[in-house]
Amino acid sequence: MNERRRGNGWWNYFWGYLARRRAYVAIAGVLAVLTALLLVAAAGSADYGRNLALNLGADLIGTIVVLFLIAPMIERGDRGRDSVLDRFDHKAFIRQAGDARHRIMVLELWLDLLQGTYRKPFADALRGALKRDVELRILLLDPDAAAARQRADDLGRTNVNTNILENLQRLHEFRQSLPERLRGNIDIRVYAALPPVQMYRVDDRLIVSFFPVNMTSWNAAQYQTNPQAQLGTFVCAKFDELWDAENTRTLEQFRRVDVEVGFGAEMDSYQVRFVTDGEHTYLGGRDIVDAHANTGIAGLHARLVRGNAQGERDVLTADALTLLEAGDPDHHDVQTLFERKYGHNHEVVLKFVPGEP
C-alpha cells in the first residue's frame, strides 16, 4: 500500500509539475513538431541515418552533462547564497509549494495567498503537496491576542482581525474538504506573541521578512535564505519556539472549547463554539439549553476547559451561566463576533461569567 501511494505521489508530482508549466509544455510541443518536420525534410539526404545518430548522440551527451552535473552544482550554489527581493513573489511561492517534496511551513499574521486570485492556485498547490505526503505547518496570529490589536495599530486602516478570521475559516474549510488520510499531514495553529519576522519555507528555501510600520510584510523587502544560514537558523528556531509556546492553540482549540455543566457532582461535557469580547466568553449554547429543557440552566454549575497545543488544560469555574437575550446591550456585538468567526450567528448564546480565581 505504501509503495502504491509513493508511486502515485510521483505521478501526481509529475503531472502537477507539467500543469503548472503549461506555457513551457506548449513551447516544447511546437519545437517537437518543427523538429519532426525538419527530420522528414532531410530524410532524403546522403548518409541521413549516420548523421542523425551522430548529432543525436552528441546532443544526448551534452544534455546528460548539463542535467546531472552542471545544473545540480548551479542549484546548490543558488541555495547557499542569500539574496534580497523587493517584495514577496506570490506566484513564485505557489510554484515552489506545488513542487515541495518534504515540508511547507508558514509563520505569518495572515496569508493574502488565501485571498483574491491567489486563493485557488495556492489551495491547489497545497492539495497536490499533501497528496505526496508533504508536511504542512501554518502559524497565524491569534485574532483574540493583544498582539493582533498592536499590529492593527501599526497598520492603520488594515483590518487585521477580520483578515485573520477569514483565513482561519478558509483553512478550516480547506482541511474539511480533504480526504481523511490527508488531514494528518496538515497542522494549523494560532500564536499569541507578536513575532519578530514572517517566514515562508518550502523544503530548504526560506523567504523571510520583518514587520514594517504602516505596511504589510509582503510589500516590504524579502530575504531569501536557507535553514543552514545564520538568518535561516534564527527564523526556524523562532518558528519552533512559537509552535510549542504555552499560549499557542490548534485550529480546533481556537474554534471550539470544552464546557462541563451539571448539578452537583454529575457533570456532562460539551464541545461548543465560542467567542471572546475582552474578559467575557460567550458560548454557542443550543445543545446545553436543549439538554436542560426540563430543569433550566439557573443554578447550573459550569467549568470552561481551555487547552493549548501541548495538551495542557486550564479550567475556569463559572459563577453563572446566563442566556443572552435579544434585548441585552451586548447581544448585537456578540452575534457579530460569531458571524465573523464562523460565517453565521447563533440563535442561542450563553454568557460564561467566571468566578473568583
Rank of each mutant, 00 (worst) to 15 (best):
residue 91 K to Y: 01
residue 6 R to E: 08
residue 67 L to C: 12
residue 138 I to K: 04
residue 19 A to P: 05
residue 26 A to H: 10
residue 110 W to G: 06
residue 67 L to V: 14
residue 53 A to W: 02
residue 18 L to Q: 13
residue 32 A to W: 09
residue 10 W to V: 12
residue 117 T to I: 09
residue 1 M to C: 08
residue 2 N to W: 05
residue 82 D to Y: 02
residue 54 L to C: 10
residue 131 K to N: 09
residue 87 R to I: 06
residue 45 S to W: 06
residue 104 I to F: 07
residue 16 G to W: 03
residue 65 V to T: 05
residue 98 G to F: 00
residue 10 W to N: 12
residue 113 L to W: 08
residue 30 V to K: 10
residue 14 F to L: 13
residue 139 L to P: 10
residue 61 I to P: 03
residue 46 A to K: 15
residue 111 L to C: 10
residue 51 N to R: 14
residue 12 N to L: 06
residue 44 G to S: 09
residue 64 I to D: 13
residue 44 G to L: 04
residue 58 A to E: 03
residue 2 N to L: 07
residue 26 A to I: 09
residue 14 F to Q: 10
residue 2 N to E: 13
residue 91 K to S: 03
residue 66 V to N: 04
residue 90 H to W: 06
residue 139 L to G: 12
residue 114 L to M: 15
residue 80 G to C: 09
residue 100 A to I: 05
residue 72 P to K: 07
residue 44 G to Y: 04
residue 140 L to W: 11
residue 21 R to S: 08
residue 17 Y to E: 02
residue 115 Q to Y: 13
residue 69 L to W: 15
residue 12 N to H: 07
residue 63 T to F: 13
residue 122 F to Q: 03
residue 139 L to T: 07
residue 31 L to N: 06
residue 132 R to S: 04
residue 32 A to Q: 11
residue 99 D to E: 11
residue 66 V to T: 06
residue 123 A to L: 15
residue 46 A to C: 03
residue 74 I to H: 09
residue 20 R to A: 00
residue 70 I to R: 06
residue 37 L to H: 01
residue 134 V to E: 04
residue 58 A to F: 11
residue 59 D to K: 10
residue 94 I to Q: 08
residue 103 R to Q: 12
residue 117 T to L: 08
residue 113 L to H: 12
residue 10 W to L: 14
residue 22 R to C: 01
residue 12 N to I: 03
residue 123 A to E: 15
residue 70 I to H: 06
residue 44 G to V: 05
residue 131 K to C: 05
residue 12 N to S: 07
residue 42 A to D: 13
residue 98 G to W: 00
residue 118 Y to S: 15
residue 93 F to A: 00
residue 84 V to T: 13
residue 4 R to N: 10
residue 28 A to V: 02
residue 64 I to R: 12
residue 40 V to Q: 00
residue 7 G to W: 09
residue 131 K to P: 02
residue 63 T to A: 15
residue 25 V to M: 13
residue 134 V to L: 08
residue 98 G to L: 00
residue 70 I to N: 07
residue 22 R to A: 06
residue 114 L to H: 11
residue 140 L to H: 10
residue 133 D to P: 03
residue 8 N to H: 04
residue 81 R to P: 02
residue 80 G to M: 11
residue 15 W to S: 14
residue 8 N to P: 00
residue 1 M to R: 11
residue 46 A to Q: 14
residue 106 V to G: 03
residue 59 D to S: 13
residue 135 E to F: 05
residue 7 G to N: 09
residue 116 G to L: 07
residue 123 A to R: 14
residue 85 L to V: 01
residue 44 G to P: 00
residue 41 A to H: 02
residue 110 W to F: 15
residue 96 Q to K: 06
residue 135 E to R: 15
residue 54 L to V: 11
residue 115 Q to K: 14
residue 24 Y to H: 12
residue 138 I to V: 14
residue 90 H to T: 07
residue 33 V to F: 13
residue 74 I to R: 12
residue 110 W to N: 12
residue 81 R to W: 09
residue 24 Y to C: 06
residue 122 F to I: 02
residue 69 L to Y: 13
residue 120 K to V: 04
residue 71 A to M: 10
residue 28 A to E: 12
residue 54 L to M: 13
residue 49 G to C: 05
residue 92 A to M: 01
residue 24 Y to M: 10
residue 125 A to E: 01
